[in-house]
Simulated scan of single mutants.
Amino acid sequence: MTAGPQDGLVAQWWATAVSRVEPGIIELREHPIQDLIGHATFVETIWLLLRGELPRPEQAGLLEAALVAGVDHGPQAPSIAAARMAATCGVGLNSAVATGVNMLGDVHGGAGQQCVQLLSEITERHDQGREFDLAVTEVVGEWRGRSRYLPGFGHRFHPHDPRRDPLLALVDRAVADGLVEGAHLRAARAVEAHLNRGREGRKPVPMNIDGATAVIYAELGFAAPLARGLFVLSRSVGILAHAWEETGQGRRNKSPMPPSMVPVHLVAPTARP
């Protein structure tokens, strides 16, 4: 049977450089899967699929550190709480995980992407000739003009995020070794210093996990949207663990609050200006 024009159309419909799958053949970015199994780590494979080539071991190590740092933040995180509630509703483990992942939006889960954008604006403005401190002041002012929250800085729970220092220490080492340039690291520390200038005696505004991982993703050359995508991969591990734990506790239709707090007395919402 000869191939017709429709065969070419079908082949192009899902054309991709990510993978090639044919009878007896599975390739990821032109790497046979049998060559990757037992040789490439999961983190290296993530890099390969997103970037089209295998990373250097030092690059993979830095990416892995960021992924490890973001795996979980307890059931007070909306994504974790939602997954645990879903797990008690008979939807199955995959649906419980999907419920948690789908909570990761602009407000909860998107700060890493936004912080990469913030830091990139500073570095780009400086590269275009703007004096560095002025670039920091301008960009921070513009972002704070749109929202009082600056992505990647401050934390409602931690006075000092315990994940910040070890992550930034790894980036410092990567800069010293010539693995990354350090421009985004410099920008992040400058923003942190700018936010804390004149706050002596008041609660500081330190860099948080979103800021520290944003530095890593940006220094490694990942586009800003992938900072959110990589965070989703990381947090899905914690979501899975919590959903699985919840399935073994025997509760059904778990609500956001303990039964002792129900019924809740509703009050009219306060009008916002």
Rank of each mutant, 00 (worst) to 15 (best):
Q117P: 02
S147V: 08
V116Y: 08
R144Q: 15
L134M: 09
M103V: 12
G109N: 08
A135N: 05
G109K: 07
Y149G: 07
Q114E: 15
G112V: 12
G112Y: 03
S147Q: 09
D127Y: 00
R130V: 13
M103T: 10
E124C: 11
E124F: 07
D106P: 04
L104G: 09
F132D: 07
R146S: 06
Q117N: 09
N102I: 06
E138Q: 12
T137I: 02
C115A: 13
W143I: 00
G145Y: 02
R144C: 05
R130Q: 11
V136C: 06
E131V: 14
C115Q: 03
N102H: 15
G105P: 09
R144G: 04
D106F: 03
A111L: 06
D106W: 03
E124S: 14
E121R: 13
V140W: 03
G145I: 06
V101L: 15
E121Q: 14
V139Y: 02
R144E: 09
G141F: 02
H126C: 11
V139T: 14
Q117L: 11
G109R: 07
A111C: 07
D133P: 00
Q114G: 13
T137N: 10
W143C: 01
E142Y: 00
F132Y: 10
E131A: 14
F132I: 08
G112E: 10
D133S: 10
Q117H: 06
T137D: 13
Q113I: 03
R148V: 13
Q128F: 02
G129S: 09
Q128W: 02
M103K: 10
G110T: 13
S120N: 11
E138K: 04
W143T: 02
G109D: 07
R146G: 04
H108S: 04
T137F: 01
V139A: 05
A111P: 04
G112P: 01
V116C: 15
S120I: 00
D127N: 09
